[in-house]
Design a protein around this nucleic acid. Structure first.
Lengths: 116, 116
DNA sequence: TGACAATAGTGTATGTCATACAGTATATTA
DNA sequence: TAATATACTGTATGACATACACTATTGTCA
């Protein structure tokens, strides 16, 4: 497989992953977390997310009302902690339901294709 | 839940679905299909895709070398059929592997969150 | 038969957000 | 002390879905 095709595959995989970043991030915020900790946690769990992506996402979700945040300056260094608020929990739950539907649909059609 | 929140949820769900359109489309092209037939097939199987999305996607995938196409003018009306070629089949298989990894990771972290 | 609707495909503008990278600030390490 | 790591903010670009407009052909119905 050539270099160009590898790039194409990478690109397609990135697009495949794209929509899952939000739900992945929301899933870790039942307890307050700060940005770099989230990057590490998620990477360890198989959800790759770049800091340049995560921070705007956190700010966006906070702006949309799903997350709340607080600065903690009592530790060795200042960190901004984000966590799901009430609305965020509700929306996250709905996204999880939707995710299961999507997975179910895709699993069905991919397995169907396997049979061919 | 207010109107604005419903819109936000809709938007997030759209983003969640976004990356799955390509793999959904590729899954149906082991046999040649034409655009509007694909829209119907996929909708029936739970993968919503708009014609305005599908046609550019089909053209893009063809340009990238994954799909081949042929006009069939022998039927009642002219239709353009697309189908996976050899490279497309290979790439599709890789995407399926990646999809399973993503699903596995997300299932793990969502179930982990359930336990909280 | 002609007008309109449905089918089928193409194209443009806009919206959304990830990525890439630059930059700032603070704490830690060499 | 200077360099590096940690932590966060901001800008430009890339990718592609959505919304909608438009063209072309065939089917339906008055």
């Amino acid at each position: 497989m050539s270099e160009d095709v590898n790039k194409l595959v990478d690109k397609l995989m990135h697009e495949l992953r794209r929509g899952t970043i939000t739900i992945g991030v929301l899933s870790q915020l039942s307890e307050p977390q700060y940005g770099y900790s989230l990057v590490t946690m998620l990477n360890e769990k198989g959800v790759q997310v770049e800091p340049g992506t995560l921070y705007p996402l956190l700010r966006r979700l906070e702006k949309q009302g799903l997350l709340s945040s607080k600065w903690d300056t009592n530790e060795s260094r200042p960190r901004k902690y984000y966590y799901l608020n009430h609305l965020g929990r509700m929306v996250y739950d709905e996204l999880c339901v939707e995710w299961r539907k999507i997975v179910s649909s895709l699993d069905f059609i991919i397995e169907e294709d396997r049979g061919n």
